[in-house]
C-alpha cells in the first residue's frame, strides 16, 4: 500500500520539475519592494491607500442583512476584527462539502447562497471585492500560513505545474518571468517575484481594486493565452501554490501596485 502511494507521488514530482530556479527564502521580496517610493507611501498610509475605500464598503456589507434568511455576515461571525483574523492568511482551504479547495471569494459566496439564501456575488463585482478586501485587512501584518492539510497537496502540486507551464502564443510560463528574471526590466517595468500576499490590490493601471485572479488573467492575456475563468479550479490551484510559495511573508492587503 505504501509503495503504491509513493509511486504516483514520484511521477508528480518528475512532471513538475523544471529548470527554473526557485527563489530562496532569504531572497524573497514582496512586490512592494519593486515599486517607486511614491507608490510605497500610498500603500503605507491608510488615508492615501485607495484600497481602504473598498475596506469601508466591505465593512458596511459585512453588517448588512441579505437574502431570504435576512442575515448579515456579522449575525453569524460577529466582529470581523476577531472572527476573520488570519482567515485570508491561510486560505485557500479544503472544503469538505465539495471535496475541493475554496478561496475567500468562494467562501463568501458559499455563505451567501447557503446561510443567507441570497444570490452569489458576481466575480470581480464591487461588493465581492469589498468583502474580500475587508476580510483580507483583518490579516494584515500576519504571516501567510497555508494550512498543513494533505487533502490540498494534489491541488497545490497541480498549481505548481500550471505555474511552470508555458502558455499562449508567446509561450511563457509564470516562472520564466517571475523566477528566472525577477528584478530585471520588461520594457520599462521591473519584474516582481509574483507573491500573492497583498490581494485584493488597488492597481494604478486599473484605477480600481481587483483580485489575484484578475491579475493572473492580465498576465495570461499578455502572453496571448486564453485566460482561465474566474473561480475555475485552475485559478484555485494556482492560488494554493502561490500561498505556499509566499509562506511566512507578511499579508499587505490592501496592497497598492503600479
Amino acid at each position: 500500500m505504501r509503495a503504491l502511494w509513493i509511486l504516483p507521488g514520484c511521477a508528480m514530482l518528475l512532471a513538475v520539475t523544471s529548470a527554473h530556479a526557485e527563489i530562496a527564502a532569504h531572497e524573497r521580496k514582496s512586490g512592494a519592494e519593486f515599486m517607486s517610493p511614491q507608490t510605497q507611501a500610498m500603500q503605507a498610509d491608510d488615508a492615501s491607500n485607495p484600497g481602504m475605500l473598498a475596506v469601508l464598503d466591505g465593512e458596511a456589507a459585512w453588517n448588512e442583512k441579505a437574502g431570504a434568511a435576512n442575515k448579515a455576515c456579522a449575525d453569524c461571525h460577529g466582529a470581523a476584527e476577531q472572527s476573520m483574523k488570519g482567515v485570508s492568511a491561510r486560505y485557500p482551504a479544503f472544503n469538505a462539502a465539495t471535496s475541493q479547495p475554496i478561496d475567500v471569494a468562494g467562501q463568501v459566496n458559499q455563505c451567501r447562497t447557503g446561510r443567507q439564501q441570497a444570490q452569489p456575488l458576481r466575480a470581480e463585482s464591487r461588493e465581492l471585492l469589498a468583502l474580500t478586501t475587508y476580510i483580507g485587512l483583518q490579516s494584515r501584518g500576519m504571516s501567510v500560513a497555508p494550512p498543513d492539510d494533505e487533502r490540498l497537496t494534489p491541488f497545490r502540486e497541480r498549481g505548481k505545474a500550471l505555474f511552470n507551464q508555458r502558455l499562449g502564443q508567446l509561450n511563457f510560463s509564470c516562472a520564466h518571468c517571475h523566477e528566472d528574471n525577477w528584478g530585471r526590466k520588461l520594457g520599462s517595468a521591473p519584474i516582481p517575484q509574483a507573491h500573492a500576499n497583498a490581494y485584493p490590490i488597488y492597481r494604478l493601471e486599473w484605477q480600481d481594486v481587483g483580485s489575484l485572479q484578475r491579475r493572473l488573467r492580465n498576465c495570461m492575456s499578455g502572453v496571448r493565452a486564453a485566460p482561465y475563468s474566474y473561480g475555475s479550479i485552475e485559478f484555485i490551484e494556482l492560488e494554493l501554490f502561490l500561498a505556499e510559495r509566499a509562506r511566512g511573508m507578511a499579508v499587505e492587503t490592501p496592497g497598492v501596485r503600479p
Binding site: S18, A19, H20, Q165, R166, L167, G168, Q169, L170, N171, F172, H176, C177, D180, N181, M220, S221, R224, A225, A226
Partner: peptide, 19 residues
C-alpha cells in the same frame, strides 16, 4: 528548451493560445 525567447514562427505545441 527552457529559453525565454518566444518561438516566432511556431504554431504547434503551444498551450491555450487566445482565439
Amino acid at each position: 528548451p527552457d529559453t525565454s525567447m518566444p518561438s516566432y514562427y511556431k504554431i504547434d505545441g503551444l498551450n491555450r493560445v487566445a482565439p
